[in-house]
Design a protein around this nucleic acid. Structure first.
Lengths: 211, 211, 211, 211
DNA sequence: CATGAATGAGATTTCATTCAT
DNA sequence: AATGAATGAAATCTCATTCAT
């Protein structure tokens, strides 16, 4: 009774749709955006070429549907807890959650980066919007702290973006570019260091001590 | 007597080669990697289709030649001054130089990001290698400071990468994704904030005060 | 009850495939291997350029499919009767059959010769293998006769190859190189002479008289 | 003084021409006719692309110049001795000489076969003409023998072509198709067998015994 | 719903040949 | 005599998309 939706059985058409989405993700993960062909997706899905166009208008459409929910999840999970708890802990929680979701969707994030850089309008916008949402949220939070005299005297708008960038870019390097077997550091260790950097950089030492 | 080499006139073939490289950069900047066709490059250059293949084996070859020197320049310029001066100033100089070169080559950096994300082996490696070079250099620098008791007690390896990422990712957002007319902040202002964040995050407050 | 399979109607795709094969043969016959373009084949077939690549990986693939069955037929027809009948007659039957099938497939044989000479690995091997199969079969046959003391005292291995070559090369000249209107001799006449040469060259005169 | 031409030193232009011819032969031997590019020839020769067209009108021209003299030599050497000596010996001498020259020019012969089969007009004609010259010569010789009652009662025109074909085709297989290391038989052995076949096939046994 | 055959525009690449120097 | 830069027509192959069944 824990808020779980009762599992409605999926209709035949929903099944096919999902199968195509999953197949697309698998192919995109392996081949990258530029290397993915519709023919690969349908082959992977087991359905036929024509079926693809029953469910998606074109190649870009399926892309958007794959990337979009991951970004929403990322935002929701990382920003949900924020503001409720104590200073250091709420930062740490946000960072750690971000890394967890990122690691689970590293392939999608790679695709997003590729697409946004390639001037694909839809993905470029998705990417920008998400980063701005993060920035604004962080900025709002820092401003609040600054009103309590807890922050150092720096440009909080730039800081908000820079710190968000730091975590995001670290995640990209750590989970996307780095081959799995080379990751010597574990997520808790990393989260702690990132949180230390974040907090040291903007908060006064006293503010941290007091929480 | 200023040490400048007397400018040897370029041979005909060197001229053509350069013209193609420049045309390629223009097209890549406008269309992105995935959107660039050899036909566009030759049209832009004024040469014929066949001429392209006299000078470059294929599309990837010209790509590498465009991206590679920019990365070298970026490293050289940003890391050159490092270690010589006073703590805060040397960080600031590095960051500012990085941003300057980045802004002058924003288009190329976008291409690099797209290419590395797209699993193009050559560019992926170029990207990784460069980031690692930066990380190692920063790490070495932080370690030196830590031996003088100047750093906070954090994981310097992660810090090195995270701080490098912060600057790089900020630059990407600021110069690549952001349309020019929306950039309200100027480079000095931004450099200062980034330097503040950087220094606050790793160095002890005393160390900063003393230089 | 005549053992004929009821003719299953060919599927759409089988039809297209066959149409391409037939068109390819026509073009290859007229233009030769080096002079044949995929564009010519599809034009001749009435299908579009893209359709070709739905059915065949590339030019070489369709080539192999055209040549290979002809060689099998040639071997089967020429060697099928062999050994059953009387000496002279079985040789004559084999030679005549060879010439008949050769004349019906002269164009294909020309292509095979061109392809094998051009160092196309697949065709070179096909050519070699077929010639060796013939040689071995003839050699076996001559050896059997030699055990009955019916052959002259010569190197039967060389003889086997040389006699096979004689018939094959004659057929090539007669049906491939010679323009049709210049062929004054008819197939029976020619078969008889070739059989005479063959038999005289290896068999003892007595053996021939006795059969 | 044995008829050797006094070696006039070659002019510069003759040198270049020869260098190109030799380079062309090397490339053609390795790559086959269809696989040879003008660019390969000039690279092999060390001269430049433009130089090729100073000496040869086009690609076909150099081809003809390479093949033509070999055919002349083949005819001259094989047919020169003919008719002078005793029956068996003159046949054997002709066959052996043919094989010797063939083996020395196997690469060229392969090119000729490829070119003739490919419907290259010039080479097709060269090939046909040469084979006809051989046939006519052999035919004339057989007819002479037949007037002395030395031949079996068979169609001498067909025989002439068939026997010529036999030797030629054997040589092709032996020196062109067969990789060198697989040739177990030596030229004397082979010549003898071919001569035996030839003589047995057309001459009366008595004629052979008497010479 | 699903199919799979067919398409054709367009991308990459090749290469014999020309020509000004 | 020799060069080598430039060409451009043409060949191969790709692939997102359509559509009749």
């Amino acid at each position: 009774m824990a808020g779980r939706k009762p599992e409605k059985p999926l209709s035949k058409s929903e099944n096919t749709r999902n199968a195509l989405l999953e197949a697309a993700l698998r192919v995109l993960s392996e081949k990258g955006l530029a290397g993915t062909r519709v023919s690969m997706i349908v082959k992977e899905s087991g359905y036929s070429q024509g079926t693809f166009y029953v469910y998606f208008e074109n190649k870009e459409a399926i892309l958007y549907e794959i990337v979009s929910p991951v970004l929403d999840k990322l935002y929701e999970v990382a920003m949900g807890f924020w503001e409720k708890g104590e200073l250091y802990e709420s930062v740490r929680h946000a960072i750690r959650s971000y890394l967890v979701v990122y690691s689970e969707n590293a392939d999608v994030m790679r695709i997003l980066v590729e697409g946004a850089a390639s001037k694909d309008k839809a993905l470029e916008r998705l990417y920008m919007d998400t980063r701005r949402r993060f920035q604004q949220r962080i900025h709002r939070y820092l401003t609040a702290a600054s009103k309590n005299g807890q922050t150092e005297d720096i440009d909080l708008e730039v800081a908000a973006f820079a710190l968000g960038s730091m975590v995001d870019s670290f995640a990209y390097w750590f989970y996307v570019m780095q081959p799995k077997h080379k990751r010597s550091m574990d997520i808790d260790q990393v989260s702690t260091t990132l949180t230390d950097l974040w907090c040291n950089s903007v908060y006064k030492r006293e503010a941290l001590r007091d929480g």
